[in-house]
């Protein structure tokens, strides 16, 4: 009996065919639902007119960079994202540190803190708009029943209020990320530090925080990315107002695209925001890599 000779080239060729056959739906999907749209958004951003069919070159970009409404919206969005980053790190880490102790009922607390993460932005928006309403809202009704003055939350500090509401939803997620990071720090480091006489405060600054740096970096990257593309909060809670105080950029883009029907101009703004997001991510990752420590 003659054994068939295994020829590696044809064999790998056959597997390559299988690989491509299996990949075919994915190649089509990412081509038509990602790469074609990305090409189209850039192409549209270079055009103008109600049908976005007249060549405009970089006109839309020049207009966007000179448009005070866009600059304001960008500033609003940046403030929102920074608030998200700081809030996520401070609150998420604090809760994770509390939950990392040998306490009874940890699982219950973890579940309770994570529950808002499951809600749609529609719930976050509608529920908090009701709770914070100056007259109807339960918060002011309780304050007034207690003899305290009611607050116009969404008038006096609208941007911080919607940032806080967003944190209400996301803090459980950040907490779980920090918890996983904390559990990755070997107990022996703490024991060694204790023997050396380091108090809890020093152990936190010298061991926990440096070794948690990769998690902190990931949390801040995620918070910036999601903060810069927040939409529902402005659409549902404030309608961008009062005035334009909460005119988050994606909400601004949405209005230019679907209310003003200027696809060229809104596409240019989308591309600019994408560039900002990618730049932020790259800068954060670079800075994070430089600050990384190992013991």
């Amino acid at each position: 009996m003659r054994m068939p000779r295994l020829r590696p080239s044809t064999l790998s060729g056959r597997y390559a065919r299988t690989a491509y056959l299996f990949l075919l739906p994915a190649i089509l999907f990412f081509a038509f639902m990602f790469y074609l749209p990305i090409g189209n958004v850039v192409a549209t951003s270079l055009r103008t007119g109600p049908q976005a069919d007249q060549w405009a070159g970089f006109g839309n970009y020049a207009q966007a960079l000179a448009d005070p409404a866009v600059a304001h919206s960008f500033l609003v969005t940046l403030t929102f994202a920074v608030a998200e980053v700081i809030g996520s790190i401070v609150l998420g880490l604090a809760l994770a540190l509390a939950l990392d102790q040998p306490l009874r009922g940890r699982v219950v607390f973890r579940v309770l803190l994570l529950v808002p993460y499951l809600t749609s932005v529609a719930i976050v928006g509608l529920l908090w708009r009701n709770i914070l309403d100056p007259e109807l809202g339960i918060l002011n009704r309780v304050l007034m029943a207690a003899g305290l003055p009611g607050q116009q939350w969404l008038n006096t500090a609208p941007l911080l209020t919607i940032a806080a509401v967003t944190l209400w939803q996301s803090v459980g997620y950040t907490m779980v990320l920090f918890l996983a990071g904390l559990q990755g720090i070997p107990e022996t480091y703490y024991e060694a530090a204790k023997i050396d006489g380091a108090d809890a405060w020093r152990r936190f600054w010298r061991i926990t925080l440096p070794l948690l740096a990769p998690t902190t970096l990931f949390v801040s990257v995620m918070a910036v990315i999601s903060g810069l593309q927040a939409f529902g909060q402005a659409y549902i809670i404030t309608n961008g107002g009062p005035g334009d105080a909460t005119d988050l950029l994606v909400f601004h883009i949405f209005n230019v695209a679907f209310r003003t029907r200027d696809f060229g101009y809104s596409s240019a703004q989308s591309v600019l925001l994408l560039i900002v997001i990618v730049a932020f991510t790259v800068i954060q990752l670079r800075a994070g890599r430089r600050g990384e420590v190992t013991y």
């Binding site: 990412f30 949405f254 997001i277």
Partner: peptide, 17 residues
Amino acid sequence: ATLMVPFFVRMIPLYVL
């Protein structure tokens, strides 16, 4: 690379498509 593409970037072209 598609991980870096937030949904709002695809929103307008997908709507047109």
